[in-house]
Simulated scan of single mutants.
Amino acid sequence: MGFRAAVITFPGSNCDRDMAVALEAVSGTPALRIWHGDADLPEGLDLIALPGGFSYGDYLRSGAMAAQSPIMRAVVAAAARGVPVLGVCNGFQVLTEARLLPGALLRNAAQRFICRTVSLTVETTDSLFTSAYRAGETIRIPVAHHDGNYYADAATLDALEGEGRIAFRYAEEVNGSARGIAGVLSANRRILGMMPHPERAIEPAAHPALGGADGRRLFESVLAALASA
């Protein structure tokens, strides 16, 4: 059986198609598209992806209402069974609101929407999302967010540092995130939330039509990890 990935769509998602296209481009298998109002997920999933956008118009807080959608109960249950989960941008916000990842995403320090390609430092290769990178490597990935300022208390930040759970860090000032954090892993390292959009950087290097190719290795990392499991 081929790679089985599911992309969740919430009202206001606008990167769900981008995520599905990227997953198919890298894996060769179309992603399953799941509506937020569904109560169940298909069996045998290899990856669940929560895409970027403005779920529920960012009403209350970004990701707060989406975290209460019926499908999120199934996502939380799947994550507890060890199914890998990737949350990008709004998906990262949903993961923090659902308490699958620590911390919160606040309004950008400059109080402006940021949309550009930024430099990231790969902080760890010890996860199924980052094994195809080199630790300390600088990569270029687009961002597009208004509420991407990562916040957690000092004890949580120290724990993330000590446990090697910071996946990516901004190599430049972007949004005021605590300690420059751009991506965080769960304790079991099978959930990744990140503000930059790897699905917008998956084109081969010779044809950088979609922001370059540095995001492609994130998806290749997942495929390689699953193939060797």
Score class of each variant (00 low, 15 high):
181 I>N: 04
143 V>Q: 07
38 D>P: 00
145 H>I: 07
14 N>I: 10
22 A>P: 08
95 L>D: 03
63 G>I: 02
172 E>L: 04
97 E>S: 10
215 G>D: 07
5 A>L: 11
98 A>M: 11
81 R>L: 15
227 A>I: 12
128 L>S: 05
215 G>S: 06
73 R>T: 13
64 A>T: 01
151 Y>E: 13
215 G>Y: 04
74 A>L: 07
45 L>C: 06
179 R>K: 15
42 P>W: 10
39 A>D: 14
215 G>V: 05
121 T>R: 12
135 A>P: 01
3 F>S: 06
216 R>G: 06
34 I>M: 05
14 N>Q: 13
202 I>A: 04
136 G>H: 08
129 F>S: 06
70 P>I: 02
161 E>Q: 14
146 H>C: 09
34 I>S: 09
201 A>Q: 02
200 R>N: 06
105 L>Q: 05
210 L>N: 14
194 M>L: 15
162 G>L: 04
20 A>S: 15
4 R>H: 14
76 V>C: 13
83 V>M: 03
79 A>S: 14
185 L>W: 01
131 S>D: 09
182 A>N: 02
177 S>G: 01
107 R>F: 03
145 H>R: 04
137 E>A: 12
87 G>H: 02
82 G>K: 10
73 R>D: 15
29 T>D: 14
118 V>D: 03
33 R>L: 15
153 D>P: 06
25 A>F: 06
129 F>D: 00
110 A>D: 15
193 G>T: 12
197 H>W: 08
194 M>I: 11
36 H>K: 02
14 N>E: 08
123 E>Q: 15
118 V>F: 01
173 E>N: 06
88 V>M: 13
185 L>D: 04
123 E>F: 11
125 T>K: 03
88 V>F: 11
203 E>L: 08
162 G>Y: 00
146 H>V: 09
32 L>M: 13
